[in-house]
Amino acid sequence: MAEACAAQVDSDQETPAAVATGEQVSDVALDFGEESMPASSVLLRLASPVFNRMLESDMKEAQQKVIKVDVAVATKQDFQVFYALLGPGAWSTDKVTEDSVDGLLSISDYYQVDFIKEACLKKLANLPVTAQRFVQANKHGLKRQRDRCLHELARRGGEEELVMLHTANSDLLLEVALKKQKLFKNFERNVPAF
């Protein structure tokens, strides 16, 4: 009797069908110049208003089924990390790491993928301030991160950071110098005279 019940249970449970692979649902190619990768237009359109506009029926990307990705925005490797986060059940803020945050921020900012950009902002808030982070915050319009970097560079920025700012963006260097001067004046007012 028990064997008959066990056999009945086994026959009632069907083997689940295999889920679609990335290749099966890919209907566009992302062109990185010398490299390309297949992608699903549905995933891209659901995640990004920029991709959604590109893939409307009257746009050349929709007609040609090819989307050029500016290498200044993303390398193929960075885009693979980004794209992997768009799949069903793939998203987790833990997947935005110190190693991936720069590429993910660039891509999510350019393609307006807010949930990934927000995760990048949270990760950046916990990373050390550097001149590069200040330039990055300025470039991507990250007000809180920019203010944090400005304040910390004015307080503790060393020669290396100041030289990097001079090379990258002299306006940002001036801003740090002025903030440093303001902090010093505030300090002088609070120090008793001898």
Rank of each mutant, 00 (worst) to 15 (best):
M1P: 03
M1A: 13
M1T: 13
A2E: 12
A7L: 15
D10G: 13
S11R: 15
Q13E: 15
P16D: 08
E23L: 14
E23F: 09
Q24P: 03
G33F: 05
P38T: 11
S40M: 05
V42Q: 11
L43Y: 12
L43N: 07
L44R: 08
E56Q: 14
E56L: 13
E56M: 10
D58F: 08
Q63G: 06
K65D: 12
D70T: 01
V71C: 13
Q80T: 03
A84R: 05
L86N: 05
G87W: 15
P88Q: 05
D94L: 06
T97Q: 07
L105N: 02
S108N: 06
Y111K: 05
Q112P: 01
V113W: 01
V113N: 10
V113S: 04
D114P: 01
F115G: 03
K117W: 02
E118W: 09
A119R: 04
A119T: 04
C120S: 05
L124S: 03
N126V: 07
P128G: 11
V129I: 09
V135S: 01
Q136W: 00
D147L: 09
L150W: 03
L150Y: 07
R155A: 13
R155L: 11
R156Q: 08
R156D: 11
R156P: 02
E159F: 03
L165P: 02
A168T: 04
A168Q: 04
S170D: 03
S170F: 04
L174P: 05
E175M: 01
V176L: 00
K179D: 12
K179T: 08
K180C: 13
Q181R: 13
L183D: 10
K185E: 15
F187A: 13
E188A: 09
N190K: 14
A193H: 11
A193C: 10
F194N: 15
